[in-house]
Design a protein around this nucleic acid. Structure first.
Length: 587
DNA sequence: TTGACCACGTA
DNA sequence: CGTACGTGGTCAAC
């Protein structure tokens, strides 16, 4: 079997651009391929090349059970343009994060989640054929996926690979049929989410360029040189502790890592605090020398434990790439997540994120994305007018007759469900000036408080869970208020995530021919590594892709989105070379 | 060993 | 008594 066989089978089956073709990858160079009409299995060398050829010749939309398949392909050097990621679409339609094949299958077939069969050790409480039927078949007589299949028995044989692919394509077809009922944008979102999963697979494999020497230098600045022995590490640690304890009085030897002990110590020294969080300590740092010492210690301690030499050794490869595992969406509003600290790396370490020789970073971030998203999803015409300038808060401030800072706090407070502070009056004016936007937020909050599930503009289900009837009235009131804030925010954060991912997958597609790649996504920021010669081309593309993405995400919206684009050597640099303008498309 | 809580970094 | 995430620490319960 070789590449020609895969392409031949698909061609004879009448597959053309954009058609759904499922792909499963086995452990030992096995490949399962399926269309709605038929399925095939291939065993042999060079099969990933076969996928690449099929991609180049036919360009189908590859159906996968999850982005694990894409990770397999990328590791083998194969990158495909488009996908239908069954697990990602499942998360979009049904909310939450759980999306293993057993659940995906059940909900796609309208079966109750509670009755999904679990894998039980043979001979313990039940025999494998309790439900009757052929245990070799993937689907039980009652319609559920056999748990052995969900657990991976399909990997064992070529027939299994083909069958598993056939099941994936059937699930995809069911999902596709359902999406029109989910919302008018849901199909677009499903494709974008699937593309984002491909991007995540690539970022997981590719990693983020980081200069090891620069990173070590920064870490050393906080915690000293890399210890050569355990004894040196212990000495360095107790040395840091001593810098705090010297202010605590003679003979005092508490564990600074214990908040209970720290709080007690501060009390003995006459500094009473409700807790020992940094912002609370900062407020009382003039009261005793120990407080600033403790704050400095915390900073160094975080560097030493979370982002220290051990972190480098674990996640920074010998090729100078920092690797974590990327996920296309979280379980709440649908933002991307990453492990290995890629999403919460301290700003101090960013100078070590450095473009490789012959390459530059093109960095772009969306400006004031959440209020602009609010204007778009709510359809508030007055707020949409405020998005036409580069600074949205200036016209809002003028409209409310308050200063810019107050206007900003009011807008953010409305979106986040702020309950305290002195923004109450500005909030009332906001409701008068932008009634449609504020009503959108209020409606979301009311529904969420009542425990009703919500959907983002793109169609993602935000699950609220049942409102606890009865029980403690005060607790329930608090829980309801928390649900309200959560729901209110989720519709904005979620829609912003959908726009961002649309942008990201558009950029991914457009920069590929230039030899550039996205190396980091940070909620509203894209970091692209590009060959130095393509810097200007890529920088322009990032802005153009934003316009294109907005057009796809919300066709005809009068809302303008902006991105700051800069070409830099290090992530921490931010020399702005261009500012994106635009996105008023004629309806 | 596990889970709750705290703390803190990012958006 | 703004939301989300991942990580690593303590502490109490197992």
């Amino acid at each position: 079997m070789d590449a020609a066989d895969v392409v031949g089978a698909l061609t004879r089956s009448g597959v053309s651009r954009g058609d759904l073709v499922a792909l499963t990858v086995g452990p030992m160079s096995g490949l399962g391929v399926a269309t709605v009409e038929g399925s095939w299995s291939f065993v042999g060398a060079d099969l990933c090349r076969a996928v690449q050829v099929a991609e180049d010749v036919l360009r189908p939309r590859w159906v996968v059970w999850s982005n694990e398949t894409a990770v397999h392909l990328v590791r083998a050097g194969v990158r495909v343009a488009t996908a239908w990621d069954v697990s990602a679409v499942h998360r979009l339609v049904f909310g939450g994060w759980a999306a293993d094949p057993a659940q995906v299958w059940a909900l796609a077939h309208g079966l109750a989640l509670e009755a999904v069969p679990a894998l039980t050790p043979p001979g313990l409480f039940s025999s494998p054929d309790d439900e009757g039927g052929d245990t070799g078949a993937p689907v039980r007589p009652d319609g559920y996926l056999r748990p052995e299949w969900a657990a991976g028995v399909w990997q064992g044989t070529p027939e299994g690979l083909a069958c598993w692919a056939a099941l994936a394509v059937s699930v995809a077809a069911r999902q596709r049929a359902r999406l029109d009922a989910v919302g008018d944008r849901a199909v677009v979102t499903a494709r974008c989410e699937s593309g984002a999963e491909l991007l995540c697979a690539e970022m997981t494999v590719d990693g983020l360029p980081m200069d090891r020497a620069a990173a070590e230098e920064i870490i050393a600045g906080f915690v000293g040189p890399r210890p050569k022995t355990d004894a040196e590490a212990a000495a360095s640690r107790s040395g840091r502790d001593a810098e705090v304890l010297r202010w605590a009085g003679p003979g005092v030897d508490i564990d600074l890592r214990s908040t209970t002990q720290v709080k007690a110590l501060l009390g003995r020294l006459g500094v009473e605090v409700a807790d020992t969080r940094a912002w609370r300590l900062r407020a009382v740092q003039d009261r005793h020398r120990v407080v600033p010492a403790l704050l400095a210690w915390r900073k160094a301690e975080r560097m030493a434990t979370t982002y220290g030499y051990a972190w480098l050794d674990e996640h920074l490869g010998p090729d100078g790439r920092l690797r974590g595992t990327w996920t296309g969406c979280d379980g709440a509003a649908g933002r991307m997540t990453a492990t290995a600290g890629l999403h919460n790396m301290p700003a101090e370490l960013r100078p070590a994120v450095m473009a490789e020789p012959g390459q530059v970073f093109v960095r772009a971030d969306l400006g004031q994305v959440e209020p602009r998203v609010l204007a778009a999803v709510s359809g508030d015409e007055a707020l949409a007018r405020a998005t036409l300038g580069n600074d949205l808060y200036a016209p809002v401030a003028a409209q409310l007759a308050v200063d810019r800072a107050t206007a900003k706090v009011a807008v953010l407070g409305a979106m986040y469900g702020q309950t305290t502070g002195h923004g109450a009056q500005a909030l009332r004016r906001l409701a008068l000036a932008y009634p449609t936007a504020m009503a959108y937020l209020d409606q979301a909050a009311r529904a969420a408080e009542a425990g009703q599930d919500l959907r983002t503009r793109g169609g993602r289900l935000v699950r609220m869970g049942p409102a606890n009837a009865g029980g403690n009235g005060l607790l329930e009131a608090r829980a309801a208020a928390a649900r309200g804030r959560y729901g209110r925010n989720a519709l904005i954060q979620g829609a912003a995530a959908e726009l961002f991912k649309t942008w990201a997958v558009t950029v991914r597609a457009r920069i590929e021919p230039l030899g550039a790649r996205i190396v980091l996504c940070l909620h509203d920021e894209l970091l692209v590594q590009a060959p130095t010669g393509q810097r200007d081309e890529v920088a322009q593309l990032l802005s153009k892709c934003l316009d294109e993405a907005v057009h796809h995400w919300a066709p005809g919206t009068p809302v303008r989105f902006v991105a700051d684009v800069s070409v830099v050597r290090r992530w921490s640099d931010a020399k702005i070379v261009a500012s994106s303008v635009q996105a008023d498309f004629a309806p």
